[in-house]
């Protein structure tokens, strides 16, 4: 049984002038000890998805349909009290601007001790402190910095502290939403290696959410490409990168400048992402797709299985696929 199974998830927002369909019909599953990356551009619903898994949607957002089965239990059926036990202890999260999540007037170590003791009240304070020391060692913060205040930390160290906090209760699943976006490349690389190492060591499942396809490529076993609230391609990372099938994935890959190989002209994706207030009936990528045919506009895209570990949401690919 997979650790997390999401079936046909729909998330909507109440906004001025109607309902915004932020996430539509997303299904995936995640095994223990595996990592899954979601990639997409701003507004594609990836952050909303992460928040929904923790049931932390903003007050105007709601899960309108679908199931989230975590560890054999339905997350949607839990009440707030039960959810509080799941958060941090079973599922924890590394937020987008996590470095700002630290309270500036409290010592970093104390904040994590507090987080631990509130969730396991039986633990004594000095035991918790010892735990934090171990955690800091794990994420690569020198033990003598435990009593420092957040402003004495560099950006990378704050991020490490936040990762330590996420690990504190030995969760089964960590949702990392843009964990390295604000960091410089060298530090980003170190943090990603750190997370990867910890994941292998403790067999934690991780969901990475990022706008940067290259970040996700290096850390996750499976990858899901999101576009305008939908999952458009899903599969084993190597397979997706070696033979991307969805036109959006292909376009996304060819719009990234690379370091090696031929210096090709970048081919940007023309146009803009669609309005999610009333999306068109057919494929959402229709307007920007280079090989769309007229029926793409009317018929919703269908999932096509390329291999047992690779599937793509494209009406066209189901026909001839242009392999």
């Amino acid at each position: 049984m997979p650790l997390l199974e999401v079936k046909d998830l729909n998330i909507h927002y109440h906004v001025q002038g109607g309902i915004l369909k932020a996430v539509e019909g997303i299904s995936f599953s995640l095994e223990k000890g595996r990592s899954l990356g979601f990639v997409g551009e701003s507004g594609c619903g990836k952050t909303t998805l992460g928040m929904a898994l923790m049931r932390l949607l903003p007050s105007n957002g709601f899960i309108s349909d679908g199931q989230i089965i975590f560890d054999g239990e339905d997350i949607r059926k839990k009440n707030e009290e039960e959810m509080r036990k799941v958060r941090w202890q079973k599922i924890s999260m590394i937020f987008q601007a996590a470095m700002n999540a630290l309270n500036p007037v409290q010592r970093v170590g104390n904040q994590i001790v507090e987080a631990i003791t509130t969730h396991s009240p039986l633990l004594k304070k000095d035991e918790a402190f010892k735990m934090v020391k171990n955690l800091f060692q794990l994420v690569g913060i020198p033990g003598d910095r435990i009593k420092d205040y957040p402003h004495q930390y560099s950006g990378g160290m704050k991020q490490r502290a936040v990762i330590a906090m996420a690990l504190a209760c030995k969760p089964k699943l960590i949702i990392a939403d843009e964990p390295t976006t604000a960091l410089d490349v060298i530090v980003q690389d170190q943090i990603l290696q750190e997370i990867k190492g910890l994941q292998e060591e403790f067999q934690i499942s991780i969901i990475f959410i990022s706008h940067d396809i290259s970040v996700v490529a290096n850390v996750s076993h499976e990858i899901g490409i999101m576009y305008a609230g939908e999952l458009v391609e899903y599969g084993n990372t190597e397979e997706v990168f070696e033979s991307p099938r969805h036109p959006y994935t292909k376009a996304l890959l060819s719009s990234y400048p690379t370091l090696n190989g031929e210096k090709n002209m970048l081919t940007p994706i023309p146009g803009e992402t669609p309005n999610l207030m009333n999306p068109q009936t057919g494929c959402r990528f229709f307007d920007r797709c280079p090989n769309a045919i007229s029926s793409c506009k009317i018929n919703p895209a269908e999932w096509v299985t390329i291999s047992p570990t690779h599937k793509v949401l494209c009406y066209q690919c189901g026909r001839d696929c242009g392999i």
């Binding site: 490349v185 060298i186 940067d212 990234y256 690379t258 190989g261």
Partner: peptide, 15 residues
């Protein structure tokens, strides 16, 4: 050199 090493690469074989 460190910058180039740290850059996440799309080409998984040369990571």
């Amino acid at each position: 050199q460190a910058l180039i090493d740290a850059l996440p690469k799309l080409d998984l074989s040369s990571s």
